[in-house]
């Protein structure tokens, strides 16, 4: 089962990952922020993740780790 993990403190809330996900299961938080005040990204449905890593590829901050 694939796993997408966001290193929340490294995320700058830029949203590039959200547009890249083919399954449309990556979105920016609306409530929780990291220490820098960014609404960090998260995977909204781990089950649907196919570990294609497109989100991680688009991430400028190496804030996403993908496991399979």
């Amino acid at each position: 089962m694939a796993k997408m993990t966001v290193i929340t403190e490294r995320c700058k809330g830029c949203g590039l990952c959200t547009a890249a996900c083919p399954k449309k299961i990556v979105a920016l938080q609306k409530e929780k922020r990291n220490k820098k005040g960014y609404f960090y990204a998260e995977c909204t449905d781990q089950e649907a993740c196919i570990s294609c890593a497109m989100c991680a590829t688009m991430c400028p901050d190496c804030a996403i780790v993908i496991e399979k």
């Binding site: 490294r10 700058k12 400028p60 901050d61």
Partner: peptide
């Protein structure tokens, strides 16, 4: 962490 602005693609090229 890098000093680059959010969404700046420098980070992608670095990686």
């Amino acid at each position: 962490p890098t000093h680059y602005c959010p969404g700046c693609t420098h980070g992608i090229v670095h990686r």
